[in-house]
C-alpha cells in the first residue's frame, strides 16, 4: 500500500524505467534521501570555522548532543562507532519524514531497507566486540557455567538473531502502518483534511522510531563493549 502517485516513478519513466521504478519505490526514494543527506553533509562541512556560523551551529548542536548522549550509555570506547550510528539515525529520521510529503514514499516503510539497516547495526556491534575483546568475545555467548555451553550457545544465538528481527519489524511496522492508515483515511474521508491528524501523529512517530533505532543500536554496542558475565 503506498501513495497512488509517486513523483520519482514518473521521473524514471522519462528514461523508460517506468516498470522498474514502480516496483521498487523504496530504492529510488532511498537514493533521493541519500543525495539530499550527502548534500546537507557537504553544506555543513564546506566552511568549518572555529566560530560557527548558522548552518554549522545547527549541525554541531545535533551531533555533539547525540554524541554526549551516546557516550553516557556506552562509555568512552563507544565514541568510535558514533559516526555509523548517527548516520543510521539521520537516515532513518529523514526516511521516516519523507512519508509525510505527498507523492513521496518513505524508504523505511519497506522491509528490505529496515532489514539492511538492522543487519548493519547488529553486525557492527559484533565487530566492535571482537575488536575490543579478541577471541574472548565468544564468552558473551557461552553463559556463566562451562558445563552448560551446549545449552547456552543456541539460546544466545537465537537471542542475537531476534535483535535483528525486532529492529527490523519495529521500524517497518510503524512506518508501513502509518502509510496504510493515511491511505485509508484518504480514501474514506475525502481529499484534503481527513488524514491530517494521522500525519501530525506521524511526525511524532517518525522522530520516536528514529530515536529508538539509534538507542537500541547504541545499547547493543554497549552490550558488546562490556565484559562478559
Amino acid at each position: 500500500m503506498q501513495h497512488p502517485y509517486l513523483i520519482l516513478t514518473s521521473f524514471f519513466g522519462m528514461f523508460g524505467l517506468d516498470g522498474w521504478a514502480a516496483k521498487h519505490p523504496h530504492v529510488t526514494y532511498m537514493w533521493l534521501a541519500m543525495i539530499i543527506l550527502i548534500f546537507l553533509g557537504w553544506l555543513g562541512g564546506k566552511s568549518i570555522s572555529m566560530v560557527p556560523k548558522k548552518a554549522q551551529n545547527v549541525f554541531e548542536v545535533l551531533i555533539s548532543g547525540l554524541e554526549e548522549f551516546m557516550v553516557t550509555i556506552t562509555g568512552d570506547e563507544g565514541r568510535k562507532s558514533f559516526p555509523l550510528v548517527l548516520t543510521i539515525f539521520i537516515f532513518v529520521l529523514f526516511g521516516n519524514l519523507m512519508g509525510l510529503v505527498p507523492a513521496f514514499f518513505p524508504p523505511t516503510a519497506n522491509i528490505n531497507t529496515t532489514l539492511a539497516l538492522a543487519i548493519i547495526a547488529v553486525a557492527w556491534s559484533h565487530v566492535i566486540g571482537i575488536q575490543l575483546h579478541g577471541v574472548k568475545y565468544i564468552k558473551h555467548f557461552l553463559g556463566p557455567i562451562p558445563a552448560m555451553i551446549p545449552l547456552f550457545l543456541p539460546i544466545e544465538i537465537i537471542g542475537h538473531t531476534a535483535r535483528v528481527l525486532s529492529l527490523t519489524f519495529r521500524l517497518f511496522g510503524n512506518m508501513a502502518g502509518h502509510e496504510l492508515v493515511t491511505i485509508i483515511l484518504l480514501t474514506l474521508g475525502g481529499m484534503f483534511l481527513a488524514p491530517l491528524p494521522v500525519m501530525a501523529l506521524g511526525t511524532f512517530v517518525a522522530l520516536v522510531q528514529a530515536l529508538v533505532f539509534f538507542l537500541l543500536s547504541t545499547m547493543y554496542i554497549a552490550g558488546a563493549i562490556e565484559e562478559a558475565h
Binding site: I73, G159, A162, R163, S166, R170, L211, V212, L215, L216
Partner: peptide
C-alpha cells in the same frame, strides 16, 4: 539520558521475547 536508556531497553523487551 538514563531515563531514555531504560525506556528504550524495557520497551524493546516484549518484542524480543515474542520474536525469540
Amino acid at each position: 539520558g538514563s531515563v531514555f536508556r531504560e525506556l528504550g531497553y524495557f520497551a524493546s523487551l516484549g518484542m524480543s521475547v515474542a520474536l525469540s
